[in-house]
């Protein structure tokens, strides 16, 4: 049952993504991207990441994509006549490269992180920082009933300092966006 739902969601995500990048008008593009994000949110639920799924819908599909649409409307880009999609050899090469990238990424999937590190940098053996990440506290997400608590614990314990720094990042981004967008300060 879970598999069927997963593949339905996966196919809809891929189709939405393809449609997103092939729409002439940016408004439908944005809407198809929202569709992809909803599909991904569903997959997150299947992967027992309910908190992330909620964040996905709230932050991405809600806030970020609304921002995109807002800018598109503001600049009045929706009615633009000409298409900006490249055709011919460029599109072909791009598609081929995309396929090659998928193949390469899928091939990489089978390799463990430590093995990759060893192959990239022979001589640095296990016990390196990469190895520590790979072999961290391995616990199945499914064993936690309290999904939010499971994410909150590492976020506010192990990753407390990075978490606080992201707040500074957000502040800087907000100030920067205002400075850039305003005509005159």
């Amino acid at each position: 049952m879970t598999e069927i739902v997963f593949y339905v969601l996966a196919i809809s995500a891929v189709l939405s993504a393809i449609l997103c990048i092939t729409q002439k008008n940016p408004v439908p593009s944005a809407l198809w991207l929202v569709s992809t994000m909803f599909a991904l949110a569903g997959i997150y639920v299947l992967l027992h990441a309910q908190f992330i799924a909620a964040m996905q819908v709230l932050v991405y599909a809600g806030a970020v994509m609304v921002l995109f649409l807002f800018v598109i409307m503001l600049l009045n880009l929706g009615r633009d006549g000409g298409s900006d999609i490249k055709k011919g050899p460029v599109a072909l090469v791009a598609t081929f490269l995309g396929a090659a990238l998928v193949a390469a990424l899928v091939a990489v999937r089978g390799t463990s992180v430590a093995g990759l590190a060893d192959r990239l940098n022979p001589g640095v053996v296990a016990g390196s920082p990469l190895g520590v990440v790979a072999g961290g506290d391995v616990q199945s997400a499914a064993s936690f009933t309290n999904a939010i608590g499971a994410v909150a614990a590492p976020m506010f314990q192990t990753y407390l300092v990075p978490f606080e720094i992201t707040s500074v990042l957000l502040l800087a981004a907000a100030v920067g966006a205002v400075v850039l967008a305003k005509r005159k300060l």
Binding site: P26, I85, G98, V102
Partner: peptide
Amino acid sequence: AILFAIGVIGVMIRRN
């Protein structure tokens, strides 16, 4: 991987 590649293709073929 597929979604990532689609994103890359999009960057390559779009100008908007």
